[in-house]
């Protein structure tokens, strides 16, 4: 038994799927998929859902809007009937898109932390290692704006200010 999360070919999920780890969909999903990590729509998978994830790889069929924080890849044979919003798009030969495509845009990432129940649940269950590295990255990118006021009172040398700036991000990791 592998550790990767999979929706098997003969399964159908109706509702909202939230994930903080990679997820492979081989069956059917109807509703919404939101992930902090990668979502792979495998060949033969049919997804009628809005997708928001860090990375989205489409090898099957998606009916619905797809948002990828880092990137979206449409593999040969992959089809999307819906709009695409992402920083970077890779559309391979044989991949199809019917909808509006917006690249180079910032997509607000999904975080499971926003939901009290999910967060409490995650604390009890160990997170897979690849997810840990990923969530740290997100925190870091959002940190500079909230941390800029901190070094202000220290009007000593320029070198010391630099040190003070670096320390908080390291401590929290």
């Amino acid at each position: 038994m592998s550790d990767v999360s999979v929706i098997a070919p003969n399964h159908r999920v109706v509702g909202t799927v939230s994930a903080a780890e990679d997820l492979i969909i081989q069956g059917r999903v109807e509703g919404r998929i939101q992930s902090e990590a990668t979502v792979i729509i495998d060949q033969a998978a049919i997804v009628e859902a809005e997708i928001l994830a860090r990375h989205v790889l489409v090898k099957g069929i998606v009916v619905g809007d797809v948002s990828g924080v880092e990137g979206i890849e449409i593999a040969p044979g992959g089809q999307v009937l819906g709009d695409l919003r992402t920083r970077r798009l890779a559309l391979r030969a044989g991949g199809r898109v019917a909808g509006n495509v917006l690249t180079g845009v910032e997509v607000q990432p999904f975080t499971m932390a926003g939901k009290g129940g999910a967060q409490a649940w995650q604390r009890q269950t160990p997170r897979p290692p690849q997810v840990r590295g990923f969530s740290e990255e997100i925190v870091e990118t959002s940190r500079p704006s909230s941390f800029t006021p901190a070094p202000q009172p220290a009007t000593v040398g320029a070198g010391e200010v630099k040190k003070a700036k670096k320390e908080p991000s390291r401590e929290s990791i």
Binding site: M1, H11, V17, A19, E21
Partner: peptide, 24 residues
């Protein structure tokens, strides 16, 4: 084939089908 719902996955809704299901 087996559906695996990993430890950090949350599904709000129904799951139906014929394959085996493992919920973490």
């Amino acid at each position: 084939a087996e559906t695996i719902i990993g430890p950090t996955i949350q599904i709000e809704g129904d799951i139906s089908g014929s394959d085996a299901l493992a919920v973490h």
